[in-house]
Structures are given as C-alpha cells and as structure tokens.
C-alpha cells in the first residue's frame, strides 16, 4: 500500500468532534483518537481524501479492493449514515460503537435486523433470506440444489416467523436472535476494548511535535 506523509492529513480529529463522539458512544476520548489512526489508514489507502470509499472498505476487509460481497456492501451502506456513498470519521465511530463489547445486545440485534432487511421494507422477506443464502453459498464455493436452499429457508422461517405471515418482523427477529446468540457473534469486536493498544502510534506522540 502506498504510504502518505503525515503532512498531507490531519494527525488527530478536531477536538470538539472527538469529545462529542466520546460523550455519545462507548468509546473514551483516547479510543476515539486511536480509531482515528485506523480511519486514516483505511481512508487514505486508495483515494487520498480522508473518506472511506467502498473499494477502500473492501481492501481493508478482504485485502482486495475489487472483491464484491453482499454482506460487506450491506455493512458499508449501514455505516454510511448520510447515504452519500462514503464513510466519514463520525459515521465510522458511531457505527463501530454498535460492535463494542459493552454496547447493549438490543442495539446489536437491531443493527443485524437492518443488515438483513436488504430492501429496507421493515421486515426480512423470504426472497431476501434466499438471496443471502445463495450469496454465502457462492462466497464459500458451496453447491446446493435449489431444493436444499428452499429447505434451509423454510426451516429458518419455521423457527423465526412466529405468526407465519411469510416475513420476519423486528419482534420476531429479536426473539429469534435472543434464542440463537451465536448468530450475533460477529456483532461484537473484542479489538474495540483495547483499540489504543492496536494503534499505539497515537499514544506515543500524542500532542508532541513530530
């Protein structure tokens, strides 16, 4: 990856922004400023504009800026709170907050629901679930017959769609996810508990001239 001299970008987020984010998320001020180190690294990896573009997000996730993935696209879209096609630092912090180990499970369940509600209709439809199953099978180079895929979708709807109306609504999802906590394991990132350890560069010269 090309490297960029520190002169070309701000070394720390504007103080008021960092303080507000620290006040409104589970991150401390120190952790917000450490997240800024990570954000800079990702947001300058391809386009030198301090914003995370989808290619940069894909590069950070997969080491491949061109690799398409339905679920990474959904995460990117949910992080892009202003829906302007890029992830800004504030959006990055507020979204990663959901993945903090100390963030309440209800917030993680709600985020996961929005993630899987591909078309944003307010419920997870059969077709959406089938599309996601086909996407993960394709990603894993797994071949299953259409019947087998239908069976998996049927089986899941039987468990989750309590009122059998053909879609999973937020309450049904909450009930289902609470009974199957393993489904939410990737909604928590232990890294976030010691983010300042992962990005010590902030701590070493914090405030000192370079």
């Amino acid at each position: 990856m090309g490297c960029v001299s520190s002169k070309q970008f701000r070394r720390a987020p504007p103080h008021e922004d960092a303080a507000l984010l620290a006040k409104e998320t589970t991150f401390s001020l120190n952790e917000v400023e450490a997240l800024y180190e990570l954000f800079k690294k990702i947001s300058y990896s391809i386009f030198k504009d301090g914003l995370i573009h989808k290619e940069e997000f894909q590069l950070a996730l997969f080491r491949n800026s061109n690799r398409k993935n339905l679920f990474a696209d959904r995460i990117f879209d949910l992080f892009d709170l202003k829906r302007n096609g890029v992830i800004e630092f504030e959006e990055f912090v507020r979204s990663l907050h959901i993945f903090h180990p100390d963030t309440p499970m209800a917030d993680k369940i709600a985020f996961a629901f929005r993630l899987y509600d591909l078309r944003g209709t307010g419920s997870i439809e059969r077709e959406e679930l089938k599309e996601m199953v086909l996407a993960i099978l394709n990603e894993s180079d797994l071949l299953l017959s259409d019947d087998a895929v239908e069976q998996i979708v049927d089986q899941t709807f039987k468990q989750a769609d309590l009122n059998s109306d053909g879609r999973i609504d937020p309450d049904e999802w909450k009930e289902f996810a609470s009974k199957n906590p393993a489904l939410l394991k990737n909604m928590t990132l232990p890294y976030l508990k010691d983010i300042t350890m992962s990005f010590p560069s902030f701590v070493v010269y914090s405030g000192a001239g370079d």
Binding site: L61, F71, A72, I152, L183, L189
Partner: peptide, 25 residues
C-alpha cells in the same frame, strides 16, 4: 436425518461480516 441448518448461522460465516479484519489491515 440432516442437521437442521439455520440460514442465519450460514450467513453469519461470511467474511463480509467479519469486521475484525479491519483492524489487521
């Protein structure tokens, strides 16, 4: 009798959902 597979368990294995990779970039 095949193990009853849950679609969301399958989906949760996607690399696209493993944001831990962001920290190793």
């Amino acid at each position: 009798e095949p193990v009853a597979l849950n679609a969301f368990e399958l989906i949760s294995m996607s690399a696209g959902l493993n944001l831990g990779n962001l920290f190793d970039s």
